[in-house]
């Protein structure tokens, strides 16, 4: 397998010199290694037996791979004060509800914004674009007040509900929906379908690539949450919080920590590997036009 599309390029694109291509490739490899090393190390660590985790001088690759850490993990799952399975369940609940809710609500809001002009539509979209320009840290303080007024402090709702209105998702969904052919929607309207019916039966099935994109952007955020500032109860905390505690706890659970770290990391990456082509397809409409 040729690494570069040279044969085709030489025919199609005349503007390529081979030495420069090689240089660029070397550059890419060098930084590719920089990107990959910590991840490869995390994978290796999860399969290291305890004595290898603490060897000196530290060793990068695993010598005698073992599943010991994962067995330990299963053992710890049941027997601590708050079983690790509880943290797992919390993370899954938060991630699933937050992500699915986000995809549905953002799509519902994106459809009118993408396809129709009505009073306020421009202003609303400008506000969403403006909200991409600052980070959630800005709103953290008043958020606490809003949460306590709603009585959502120390509930999963404090993580799930705000995640549903993540502005980047609405932005990308709207840009993607704009390219749906108007004729398709018109035809349905002539057949007498209501807006809601059109949305569910025509628009939604046609924006599947964008669902996956919203999933890829929102999933890692929720999957990696440590419970934020609003969840205090131990039994409501998340897997990442448990990992932080294990890491702080030091040597005794280092093996289990490495296993949990691998699980936290590998799930979002696997999702991306599966959905990559659809995500890129969505991103091609992501631009800001005016």
């Amino acid at each position: 397998m040729a690494l570069f599309q040279h044969r085709r390029i030489i025919k199609k694109r005349l503007n390529r010199s081979i030495p420069v291509t090689i240089m660029l490739f070397a550059f890419l490899m060098l930084f590719g290694m920089f990107m990959a090393i910590p991840l490869v190390y995390a994978i290796n660590n999860a399969f290291k037996p305890l004595d290898e985790l603490f060897i000196f001088p530290p060793r990068f690759f695993v010598r005698n791979p073992t599943l010991e850490n994962f067995f330990d993990l299963v053992a710890v799952m049941g027997d601590s004060w708050v079983p690790l399975s509880r943290y797992f369940a919390n993370t899954i609940i938060i991630t699933v509800f937050g992500t699915v809710g986000h995809i549905i609500f953002a799509s519902m809001a994106a459809y009118p914004l993408a396809k129709y002009k009505f009073p306020g539509s421009r202003v609303i979209f400008s506000i969403v674009v403006l909200s991409l320009m600052f980070s959630p840290h800005v709103t953290a303080i008043p958020n606490y007040i809003v949460m306590s007024q709603l009585g959502w402090i120390d509930t999963h709702a404090s993580l799930i509900i705000p995640a549903m209105a993540f502005p980047l998702g609405l932005f990308l969904m709207k840009q993607f929906m704009e390219q749906l052919p108007d004729a398709m929607l018109e035809a349905a309207k002539i057949d007498g379908a209501s807006e809601y019916r059109i949305f569910w039966t025509i628009v939604m099935p046609n924006v599947k690539p964008a669902w996956l994109t919203l999933l890829i952007l929102q999933f890692p955020v929720l999957w990696g949450t440590n419970g934020g500032d609003f969840v205090y109860s131990e039994e409501l905390k998340t897997l990442n919080y448990a990992l932080e505690q294990i890491t702080l706890g030091g040597i005794a659970r280092a093996g289990v920590g490495a296993a949990v770290a691998l699980i936290l990391m590998i799930v979002p990456i696997t999702l991306f590997v599966i959905s990559q082509s659809k995500v890129i397809q969505t991103m091609s409409t992501s631009g800001m036009k005016d």
Binding site: M35, A36, A42, N240, A261, L264, M265, I269, F272
Partner: peptide
Amino acid sequence: TVIFYAPSISGNVFFI
């Protein structure tokens, strides 16, 4: 693409 994008979605692996 996966290699370069992975760090940004790999959660708290930066503790490595």
